[in-house]
Design a binder for these strands. Structure first.
Lengths: 326, 326
DNA sequence: GAAGGGCGTGAGAGCGCTCTCCCAATCCTG
DNA sequence: CAGGATTGGGAGAGCGCTCTCACGCCCTTC
């Protein structure tokens, strides 16, 4: 079975290859009659443009990469699906492919060379770790890139994030409005912007809060809560900097004989699926992940279309989702 | 900044483009001295092959698609990440891209035309719904495709699945060995092969089990458990056909005053992350999702390399993971 | 009625690569 | 040492598309 080429469509329509190409690409300078002839020829032959050939001359791959952190952390990340659907929602209608890449040995390098050899038009980088060299390399080479989340060190790069500080403040205000007297927080890792901002935002609202550190994992949430109950048994309100940690912490509270929210109110962060699998369901700070992902896609597309366009990061407003836990 | 071409590498190395190409593609018939010259030229110029040009002549896109079901169901699917990592693990080292596609309006058609126009070499289809026309279209056109999970209607298509029946039997045997007297099951949707097989496999082992239907969602698990407690309050062992449903069902059990596993033993299916977020943690039937995904990738790659090769489906053995719930 | 300006069309030159010839050089064999 | 076999390298023809450029044609405009 042979593939139909533009040449063939042109022959059937009785026009030149150039005109057929114009119709395929929606140029406006084609006579109505000829346009119809070409369109008929396209549908009668079942023509589909060969992307490789087009790509060769336009120097666009019409594909972008989504570079995810190492597998272990990602496997538990309930955000992933929302990110993917937000990005594809923007990108698919434009015929742009979304290529998924996980950080493994050498994979970040892979993505870089895919970008350099024109196989990918740009990448969205999720969760770069501190001191990750990739973002800097990308901006140095002028390659289109958008970061999910503000980078730890300031650099001239487009990112999309939620206002973490404001979100944590929301949580603080909620606990205060619940008339909690002894308030604590379980933090995220302090070498990440999100971890830092959620702490500072919360402390600004509740300056005398007890601070226990976690690292965003479920296990660390459980461990931190054990520590908290030991050092501060009269706590009656906790802001836990991720739903996943809250998910690990709440059973510890139960085992410690506390009822949630009656004895201890709990507010999480993320509004991930973990918020719904908790018992009771989590009051949490919502990040509009899907919208943010869509915005990342739009920003990336803009950079691809207009290279070296100015850096314009976007910060979304978080909101409080009140459920049962606090 | 200009891109380096093969032509340039050849000039620097003092050979023809053909020889340079041979070195790049690892042909064995190149003299050691020349090979080294070319390799030096490649690294000194920073040459990277242009994929579009290569693709144009080899007629391979070196990209495969992962076609996922509609977003709503997928968002809650904890398997996704394992599937992705299993597939990329096989496919990336070979330089093959994984393109993620979600079923939206017209997206399945998109995937088909991507396949037809050579933009994708093959697809992995996850969760086709009953009477989905896409699998048949694909096999009719001889396009490489692998199904995740046995199709409902038998058709000559390669699929990878776990032995659902055997897995459910494992669950049944576990509950019997726990000396449960009154055993029940909450099923998956009976219009899916997994839903059917998990029921029949379980019933073969526990013929007198009480049957309540669910549809694999958390909500349906909760609803089914309420129904079960009403119609059969003395139940002391339940096989729930998905961890997600078990996740919804266990709180209902608690609210009904039953302790898990003391009063009611619970066994789930999937060994998804939902099994770990349950309280207590779920005893469940494990499907080696990541291995299965890797196998799907291998099968697909084989089909791409050797078109029209015979259909060879692979069925994996499930295993029982004993945790706290039963 | 001639000159000027659009506008739509076709010819053709690539884009960067692979791969099929074909030729030259080397090797073996009798 | 001649003949054939074998091997490595080069020339060049595409792969299917886009896009520039130049050429008609028709519609103005004085």
């Amino acid at each position: 079975m042979r593939r139909v080429t533009l040449e063939e469509v042109a022959r059937v329509a009785g026009v030149s290859r150039a005109t057929a190409s114009r119709v395929v690409n929606g140029a406006s300078t084609v006579d109505e009659a000829l346009r119809h002839a070409v369109e008929r020829a396209i549908s009668s032959t079942g023509y589909l443009p060969n992307i490789a050939a087009r790509s060769l001359v336009t120097r666009r791959a019409d594909a972008i990469g989504l570079l995810l952190p190492d597998e272990r952390r990602m496997l538990g990340d309930p955000h992933l699906a929302s990110v993917v659907s937000g990005v594809t929602g923007v990108v698919r209608p434009l015929g742009v492919h979304l290529v998924l890449m996980m950080t493994g040995p050498g994979t970040r390098e892979q993505a870089l060379s895919d970008l350099r050899c024109g196989r990918l038009d740009g990448v969205i980088l999720v969760h770069t770790y501190p001191s990750d060299p990739v973002p800097r390399q990308l901006i140095a080479e002028g390659l289109p890139v958008v970061l999910a989340g503000r980078p730890l060190d300031p650099m001239p790069i487009t990112y999309v994030d939620v206002d973490q500080t404001a979100g944590a403040a929301l949580a603080g205000r909620r606990l205060k409005s619940l008339r909690c007297g002894k308030i604590a927080t379980i933090t995220g890792p302090q070498d990440t912007p999100a971890g830092q901002d959620r702490l500072t935002g919360f402390m600004a609202e509740v300056p005398d809060a007890v601070v226990v550190h976690g690292d965003f994992t479920r296990q660390s949430g459980a461990a931190a809560m054990e520590q908290l109950l030991r050092c501060c048994p009269d706590v009656d309100g906790v802001f836990i900097a991720s739903d996943l940690m809250a998910n690990g912490a709440i059973p510890v509270l139960h085992r410690g004989g506390r009822k949630v929210p009656d004895d201890v109110a709990v507010v999480g962060f993320d509004d991930s699926t973990a918020a719904l699998t908790s018992e009771p369901e989590l009051t949490t700070v919502r990040q509009p992940i899907s919208d943010m992902a869509a915005e990342m896609a739009r920003q990336l597309l803009r950079q691809i279309t207009k290279p070296r366009s100015p850096v314009t990061s976007v910060v979304f407003e978080p909101s409080l989702v009140v459920r049962e836990s606090g």
